[in-house]
């Protein structure tokens, strides 16, 4: 069955009537023929989920905004540089155009660490209520399903417009368009720092600390549950995380100059 709601309230009505329905965003998880293809699909291509809203202190994106559009909008906002970099790091460009913000989070794509570092908020909704959560709490443990209660949808991702924030994202891949084997995102406001790591650990990892306390960051990196798989060993990933952090911290002054 293919459910094609016209607006959010219709969407939740349909979902209520067909609780087994699986939402379709960019399509990469559900459309390929095979045993993973769900019997009932719920199309998220509705206007309300594709909006970009700018307020004084926030920039809010619908989950159906394409990764490419996200990168374009953020290109002029130095504080959110890390998110733009992570979006552009989702290659190739044609894939980026079809990939959605929500889908990227769902498949464990490049955006999660950058969004977590800049302090993005996930806005989730079921047919009754709206809730706001830090983005890292909805990012999946295993790619394929966001951590949301049943029949609850990620309806927006809100990014802070913090004039004094600078951020940077760096990643490393084994093959040209394969997934990152290590990714690091840092965001700094004053001396406060948020550091998030992706690719190298089964789950998104994040710490908050002091920009001046490099030793604490190194300790945190060293204690991370970094895993090895055929793409790269744990030892290599651990070393690359340290290197990427180094590069990100070095690049921060440049990022802040851009913001000035």
């Amino acid at each position: 069955m293919y459910l094609r709601p016209r607006n959010l309230s219709e969407l939740f009505e349909m979902w209520h009537a067909h609780p087994e329905a699986v939402p379709v965003a960019g399509g990469s998880r559900v459309l390929p023929l095979g045993p993973q293809r769900p019997a009932v699909l719920l199309d998220l291509a509705i206007a309300a989920l594709q909006t970009i809203e700018k307020e004084a202190q926030f920039l809010t994106f619908g989950p159906m905004v394409s990764v490419d559009r996200l990168a374009a909008v953020l290109a002029s906002l130095p504080g959110l540089h890390a998110v733009a970099q992570a979006a552009l790091g989702f290659v190739p460009v044609q894939v980026r155009k079809q990939a959605t913000l929500g889908g990227n989070l769902l498949i464990g794509g490049s955006l999660a660490p950058a969004l977590a570092a800049v302090g993005a908020i996930a806005i989730i909704k079921n047919h009754q209520e709206i809730q706001e959560l830090p983005i890292q709490s909805v990012v999946p443990v295993q790619p394929g399903r966001l951590r949301l209660p049943a029949q609850t949808l990620l309806v927006a991702v809100r990014l802070p417009l913090e004039p004094s924030m600078v951020s940077y994202y760096a990643a490393l891949r084994r093959t040209p368009v394969g997934p990152a084997v290590a990714a690091v995102a840092v965001a700094v406001v004053g001396s406060g720092l948020r550091l998030a790591v992706g690719g190298a650990t089964p789950q998104l990892q994040m710490m908050q600390g002091d920009l001046a306390d490099r030793a604490a960051m190194d300790r945190w990196l060293q204690d991370l549950p970094v895993t090895g798989d055929p793409r790269a060993s744990a030892a290599y990933r651990q070393a690359m995380l340290a290197l990427l952090l180094e590069r990100a911290l070095d690049a921060l002054p440049t990022a802040s100059r851009q913001s000035a």
């Binding site: 399509g27 459309l31 199309d43 291509a45 079809q98």
Partner: peptide
Amino acid sequence: CVRVDGERLLSCLAPAWR
């Protein structure tokens, strides 16, 4: 790759009914 309503798409990931 095809163009759908003026937009270039990888059509293996574009739901037909959408």
